[in-house]
Structure formats: C-alpha cells, structure tokens
Nucleic acid binder design. Structure first.
Lengths: 203, 203
DNA sequence: CCCCTAATGGGTCTTTAGTTCCGTTAAGAT
DNA sequence: ATCTTAACGGAACTAAAGACCCATTAGGGG
C-alpha cells in the first residue's frame, strides 16, 4: 500500500507494459509528424496507440513528458562517431549525419517537438541536453584523433568544433527557416575545419 | 455588409484598437515569461490585458497568431548594424547584440516562444523568417564594408558570416541548453572572423 | 457636434482536455 | 499451476478552452 508513490511501469516493466510504451511512443511520433508539438493531444495519441487514455496520463504526465521520454529513447540509439582516417571526412560525415537526422520526416519532427517542448519544460530540456552532451562527446573523439595525427593544432577544443558544425544547421532549421541541404551541411563542416586549422578553437 | 470578410482592426486602427493591441501584446509577453509558449492561454492573456477574451480570439486566431504578431512588432524595432571601423569590433558588437536579445528576460522568452510556435505554425514561421532575413541583411553590410576596406577576401558571403556568428548562440539556447554568456558570444564572433579571413565564406 | 458602424465585452453555449473511480487483465513470484 | 497485485481500460465526471450572440462603446468622416 506504499508503492503508489512510485511511478507506474517500474515494478512490472516486461510484457504488456513494454508493448504499451512502444505503441504510445510510435503513436506520438506519428502525431508529431502530422500536427507538431503544439497540436499534440494525449487523447489522439492514446487512440492511435490503441491504449486507454487513462494509461497515457498515468505513465506520462503530459505532452512534454511524452516527447521527453521519446528523446530519452533516441539517446540510447545514437550512433558512434566516424573514423575515416582524415578530419575532413570525419567532419563531413558528422555534418551529413546531422542533416540526415533533421531532414528525416519522423526524426526531424520529433527533434523539433522536443526543442519546442524544452523551451518551457524542464524534463524535456534535460532530455535534450543529455542527448546532445552524449553526441558531442562521442563525435569529439574524431577531433582528438585528428590532433594526434597532427591534422589540427594541439589544444583544439573538440566539443566546440562539433558544436560549430551542427549549429548552423539547427539555426536554419529552427530560426531562419531556410532549407537545409547537403551543400549547406558540407559548407558548415568545411568552415568549422578552416577555423579549427587556424587555431580558432584552441584554449 | 461585406467588410466582415476583412480582419477586425484594419478599418479603424487608431485609438482604442491600438490601445487594445498594445495591451494584449504586452500581456502576451508577461505570460510567456511566466509559462512559455506551451502554457500560453488566450484567456489569461485577455484577463491580464484587461480586455474581453472575445476580442483576443477575434483579432488573433490563436496562441500562434499572438506570438507571430509579437514577432512582427519586434521586426519593426530592429536596430541598425554597427560601424565601428573594424570588422573585428563590428562582429563583436553583432554577437553581443544577439547575446543581449536572448538573455533579456522578456525578449528572450518571446524569441523562444516564437521559435517553438514556428515548429508547427506557418504564420509564426513566416514572421520569424522575415525578422531574421532583415536582421541578417542589415548586419551583412558590416561585412561588405570590411571587404571594401580590404579586411576580408573579395567575394566573402556576408550573410553567411552573420549567420555563422548567431548560430552557435541559438544552438546553445535552444538545443544543448548550455548557458550563453559574453565569452561564448565573443568566441563565436572570433571564430567566424578567422574562418572568413581564410576564405571559408567565399563563393 | 452628430451620425454611422467598426470594434469591444459580457454572457452563454459547445467542445475538448484532463481526472477519478472501479472492474478487468496479465506480470511474475512461489 | 496458482496467487497476488501491478498495470490497463472503459465510463462518468470536472475544468478549461474556444465559439457565438447581441447589446454597448467609441473612431473618424461628414
């Protein structure tokens, strides 16, 4: 009689509980593609997932909780950094992977939704932050390798270089609403590389 | 009997209509600071502004329309580009003006709200797009002057340099949720400048 | 100053979001 | 296989969002 203080789904996470979670997160992505975060209704998600809306409200507090959980799920699926042998190609690969993510219909819609949710919800903000922290640390290794190969100056801040590549793509996607294509991504990688080679990321 | 197809507030825009608009936009900003875009309620805005909620629904379609109008209002107030005599200082001024905007309590909350709204609303997206198009064109002049002074290579894409300065700041604000301070802004300006001097923005 | 009507605002109605209750189903431990 | 109870789902309920109607107020042209 004391376990009702704990969150539902933690004591018996197998079988049905897992199936419900998968169905709800799938349905959430579908809804995000159709209506975006502001148009995300718990009711619609429950109906599409084929589960009772009581269940959705019980396990996820609200719309922000849903997308936060979605982001957490994606964090576990993030890929390893490229290791092609040259920084130039590694950074190009990084830019193209960001491009692929934000131009993918489902993934792109999900990312934008989490970002929208994170502007006013702590949980979503934390999920986002964690996701990119990991991603930046992972791809930062490419820079460390490049430094060891002598391709970049000693002391170059790898995390900052990786951020510098993604930033213009997200800026276009979210702020200026300009289209983001392959050429944009490649330019972004090249510019970060030029700056890095000239020591702009040292210190 | 035909003018009801036109939007309310366009035939008699002076006096009361203008006062109502000002009060509503003010109240909208207050609410955005408190609850963010996702928590923006037309009802609360009307109450805070001291106007009937019917009026708010009539003149602005919904929450997205409110923030879109707010953005349009801000677009008219945008400042002219700096002209200190050196690119270095002009770009630094640009970065600091972005910093000031996103760290200001009311303006920052408004910008984040419009960005959140723009992820799923065309009107808000258009307002954002227009705002930054203007801003980038305005500050791009600093780069043109620098090219004429011989500080940057002929053919440098000024708009892209300006975007490159803002991008990392918005990236941190919206995506990674890292704090954005003066040092971050200055680094961003410096890095874009280094890349530009080395021809990364030509072509 | 007067008139016409654009624009506002209170009140009411409808719809949708979110909660609660309780019976049913199925994990997972023995 | 059996039992306990975590977790689900339908239904009824409450609260809030949003739409509508019509009387009142005040721009702005004459």
């Amino acid at each position: 009689m004391e376990q009702d203080s704990r969150l539902a789904g933690t004591v018996r996470p197998g079988g049905r509980t897992a199936r419900v979670r998968a169905a709800v997160l799938e349905a959430t992505q579908d809804e995000l593609v159709l209506h975006g975060f502001h148009g995300l209704s718990m009711d619609a998600v429950a109906a599409r997932a084929g589960v009772g809306k009581t269940t959705v409200y019980r396990r996820w507090t609200g719309a922000a909780g849903l997308v936060a959980d979605l982001m957490t799920e994606l964090a576990d699926q993030s890929a390893a950094h490229a290791n092609t042998g040259t920084v130039e190609e590694d950074l190009r690969a990084n830019a193209l992977s960001v491009l692929a993510a934000i131009t993918d219909e489902r993934l792109g819609a999900t990312l934008q939704a989490v970002i929208a949710a994170a502007t006013c919800d702590k949980e979503a903000a934390a999920a986002l932050s964690t996701f990119y922290e990991r991603r930046i640390a992972e791809w930062g290794k490419s820079i460390d390798l490049a430094i060891r190969r002598g391709e970049l100056p000693e002391g170059t801040d790898g995390h900052e270089v990786i951020r510098a590549i993604s930033a213009p793509l997200y800026y276009r996607l979210l702020v200026t609403k300009e289209p983001v294509d392959k050429a944009t991504a490649e330019r972004s990688a090249t510019r970060a590389l030029v700056a890095a080679r000239n020591g702009a990321f040292v210190g």
